[in-house]
Amino acid sequence: MTGSPHTVLAGNSVRLVMLKVLVALIPGIVAHAWFFGPGIWVSLLLCTLLGVAFEALALLMRGYPLKPFLSDGSTVVTAWLLALSMPTLAPWWLYAVGMLFAILVAKHLYGGLGQNLFNPAMIGFAVLLVSFPVYMTQWPAPVELASHTPDLIESFDLVFAGQGAVSPDAYTTATPLDLLRTQRLAGDEVGGIMAQPAFGVVGGTGHEMVVLMYLLGGLLLLNYRLITWHIPVAFLGTIAVTAGVLQFLDPTNHPDPLFHLTSGGAMLAAFFILTDPVSASATPRGKLIYAGLAGFLVVMIRNYGGYPDGVAFTVLIANMAVPFIDAYTQPRVFGHGRKEKGK
């Protein structure tokens, strides 16, 4: 007995979906390499290889066939998202720990592809953030502001052999969000802080261009119809509104909405991380609530929390709320309940 439909299917596949996501990430990656140096290639490559290795290991242990699941591309997407979220030029084992948690714990302990409650990349990122906070603050400095930018060979050396000839101070720096947080804690006013060169035009030198490219990639995803407008619009919109209200109430302590939108992981999360279908809400209304919750939390953590950027944690908290949100936001089914009109 063969089930219907019996026909050439729509030509959609998990691999194709993942491939399109990877394509949409490319503008951001290129911008990253351009503005922060070629170190990103090393971390992308490393994370991809580690991801595939861990995935293969997990599949073997669980008795699943390797070929369809290794080639579905989901591991590569997780690897790239983690690599793009992490500081480049960190020691290799840091990536290894991150990918280990992402693939083995967040993905396969929950049942593998399609079963994970949390975004694997964000689990890996969050584990690193709480376990190795020092490494997670050594971000590559923008080429424009750095006294030295390691080339590709040097980047390999730094990642695999640790210290190179140059002191890390020459090529790493704090992100604008880090700077903002530490200097605000020291009592400085936002206006003064943000006048520094690291802050660039809106969201930090270098960062703002990468973010712009992520936005471009996100529009590509929308065009591919892989994501709907709900999550990015609700997420970015809530960030803007929350940040706007805070700035209106107390401008000396809160940066402007545009800065929030263009710094840290907000844009990447809006189009690539929060929209991971497996861990995101799936109903239209649910997506608005889910992404709105995440947007609100991002601004709250950035302004009042213990971390400079709250994206990883907000994503995980929002993921946690998904089953609940989905259960209560089921859309109306054709032929059901038209009563909301009259009464």
């Binding site: 007995m1 089930g3 669980r62 008795g63 699943y64 066939p65």
Partner: peptide
């Protein structure tokens, strides 16, 4: 109608 059998996992 029968339960659709789809072998995701290798049957050893």
């Amino acid at each position: 109608w029968r339960y659709p059998v789809i072998p995701l996992k290798k049957v050893a």
